[in-house]
């Protein structure tokens, strides 16, 4: 079968060819190698590795903390984007640039700085610990680190969409008698929702794979504050390549299912609100 229909834009064949080649080379090939390596394990051996209490606890912690961090960022990141787009204020460009810092900072630096702040003798820690709030070396610390590193994803995906929203829409809504809250919840929010979901997804995906910043602040106690990527490193240190691969494959599958589900929701929400992109 041939594609008879020609696009107005030239270079479709070449463009698609390069796209597929590039994706295969950069994304698919390493993932295929991972899956092949794990295929040398029997199903029982695979299950025995990934169903131990410790692995299950680590996976729960990794995905739970990541979801929570992404949710926090979906709310506060949206707020940051909103403020940056809607209100003029002095130092706005500076704040705008600050948002990207977690992107640029090496994650180990982020981890060490956060630990220094929240450790019992740190700037925040010295006041929080007497109140019974332990952040450093607890799962709460993991949440703080993940929230920090994944903030830019939400802000940077929501911001351009907010900027593109036409003022006429709001004016029209006002003329039709909508209250401010109605304008926000019925006009603005639905338009931003797909971008917000994308930001949430990116933040979540980034957080699940995060290692560098978390190990410094987590405390890494098995069953309590040990994340799944650390288990993978632990297995590699013992030259247990298959065990490491097995956990990696489980993480990959869970991530893929979750990302797929979020994409479905996104598709559903943009259809429901009559927006085709």
């Amino acid at each position: 079968m041939r594609f008879k229909q020609h696009s107005v834009l030239p270079g479709f064949g070449l463009g698609l060819g390069y796209t597929l080649f590039w994706l295969c080379l950069i994304v698919l090939l390493p993932l295929a190698a991972l899956l092949m390596k794990s295929a040398s394990l029997s199903a029982e051996a695979f299950w025995a590795i990934v169903s131990t209490d410790r692995v299950v606890a680590a996976l729960k912690l990794s995905f739970g903390a990541s979801l929570l961090a992404a949710s926090l960022n979906a709310f506060f990141g949206f707020l940051v984007a909103w403020v940056l787009v809607r209100y003029p204020f002095p130092g706005k460009r500076l704040v705008d640039a600050l948002v990207d810092l977690p992107f640029a900072l090496p994650t180990a630096v982020a981890g060490i700085s956060l630990t220094t702040l929240y450790a019992p003798n740190g700037w925040f820690g010295q006041y929080l610990v007497p109140l019974g709030i332990n952040v450093a070396f607890t799962p709460l610390g993991i949440l703080v680190a993940l929230t920090f590193i994944s903030l830019p994803f939400v802000v940077r995906t929501v911001q351009p969409v907010l900027e593109d929203l036409e003022a006429e829409l709001e004016e029209a809504a006002t003329c039709l008698g909508a209250t401010r809250w109605q304008i926000f919840s019925r006009v603005l929010f639905p338009a931003v929702l797909p971008a917000l979901l994308t930001g949430f997804t990116l933040a979540f995906a980034r957080a699940t794979g995060e290692f560098g910043s978390v190990i410094f602040i987590a405390g890494n106690i098995p069953m309590v504050s040990e994340i799944a990527p650390l288990l993978i490193i632990g297995k590699l240190e013992q030259f247990d390549f298959l065990g490491a691969t097995a956990i990696a494959v489980v993480m990959l599958v869970i991530s893929f299912v979750m990302l797929f589900a979020i994409n479905l929701i996104q598709w559903w929400s943009s259809r429901r609100h009559g927006m085709t992109r």
Binding site: F216, G219, I221
Partner: peptide, 9 residues
């Protein structure tokens, strides 16, 4: 209370 990944840590 804390199980660091390496000796220096």
């Amino acid at each position: 209370p804390v199980l660091d990944a390496g000796g220096r840590a």
